[in-house]
Design a protein around this nucleic acid. Structure first.
Lengths: 186, 186
DNA sequence: CGGTCTTTATAGTAATTTCTGAAAAGAGAG
DNA sequence: CTCTCTTTTCAGAAATTACTATAAAGACCG
């Protein structure tokens, strides 16, 4: 039998609250549901994996809402289930390495948004090539956009393939590196 | 007196339609209002600046909605007003250089979202330093996150300062460059 | 099995966001 | 100043998105 007091009271510290609320707002600005982002923030700063009911209680949202949101976070691959001895409930933890989170979310957004957009652009450019309906201009613009997104896509691919440690190294070097390259390329 | 036929019929080609609709969807995924994104797409592929009524008619949305959306696009600094001889109406055009659009939007998102988040994180870390409420762990996580966003912020600053041509050069070189740096830093 | 604990699905409700129509405000032209 | 054309504002309507409560499903134990 379990010896856990299933209903751990866990009120947020003012700092935790501030961070979680802000993170929720930022989520909405980037197309992420507020509650989803808040749960992620909570798990990110939590030293232990948390069960869904505790998350619901802490953030004052319905248990079912937490369930759905956790599923979404798992879809983004930045939260996973773990189990705790003597407790039947699922517990959830976030990836803790910010560089790794960035890497994974980048990969996911590329897959979900950039790649499909490239496919649409390819389709558009093809169609315009096949029967130029008089809009050479549109074709030029769409080709530019495709070129841009292809470059971005390649950049993401590179970043995605790197281990988080290397990514961190590269991005923190940027001052010197990018400036230097900028001079070379400009 | 103007000789313009103020109500130019301008139905979208299938390709234009496909692109505009997709761009609208992508907008919503990144926290941009669908109509705002559609208007941007329309202006982006339009060879001429367009007046608000024509945009409204083409996209089948209310004139007032177009007005608001154009204002927002101007807020993002990727659309501007121009005037056409013999026409009292404002006409609008998008920046056409995709690299420049990227540069400007990056700058704006940094200013609106990353910088404020850094301020919040600074505040949080300060408070935790002042009175460590037992959560050394939270402090560690927030410090990591701050470090990450600071690096990103710096990266954006570099990109923002570059002329679009240089930015294009740097990003298209990425294959070799990033790989090389990755090896060095990893 | 039956019983208990937990998670998931979903239909309806609530909240938020987006959009519209109408009216006000602004901007020349004469 | 007045008339006309254009843009902006804004209150309410519509649409979408998010959330909750409840019920069903799943998992484990004895």
């Amino acid at each position: 039998m379990s010896v856990n007091t299933k209903t751990t009271q866990n009120p947020l510290t003012p700092v935790a609250q501030k961070f979680i609320l802000h993170w929720g707002e930022m989520g909405t600005r980037w197309g992420i549901n507020r509650t989803v982002a808040q749960i992620h923030a909570l798990l990110f700063i939590s030293p232990h994996p948390l069960p869904a009911d505790e998350i619901a209680e802490t953030l004052a949202v319905a248990r079912s809402n937490v369930s759905t949101s956790l599923r979404e976070l798992q879809g983004w691959r930045i939260v996973r289930v773990v189990h705790v001895l003597g407790d039947r409930r699922d517990h959830f933890e976030s990836i803790k390495d910010v560089w790794e989170i960035f890497r994974i979310v980048s990969e996911e957004r590329k897959r979900r948004e950039i790649d499909p957009t490239l496919r649409v652009l390819d389709g558009c450019v093809q169609e315009l090539k096949a029967n130029p309906q008089g809009d050479a201009y549109t074709r030029e613009r769409l080709t530019d956009m495709r070129e841009f997104l292809t470059a971005m896509s390649g950049l993401f691919d590179e970043a995605i393939r790197m281990p988080a440690g290397a990514l961190k190294g590269v991005l923190k070097l940027r001052g010197k590196v990018v400036t230097m390259l900028g001079k070379r390329a400009g």
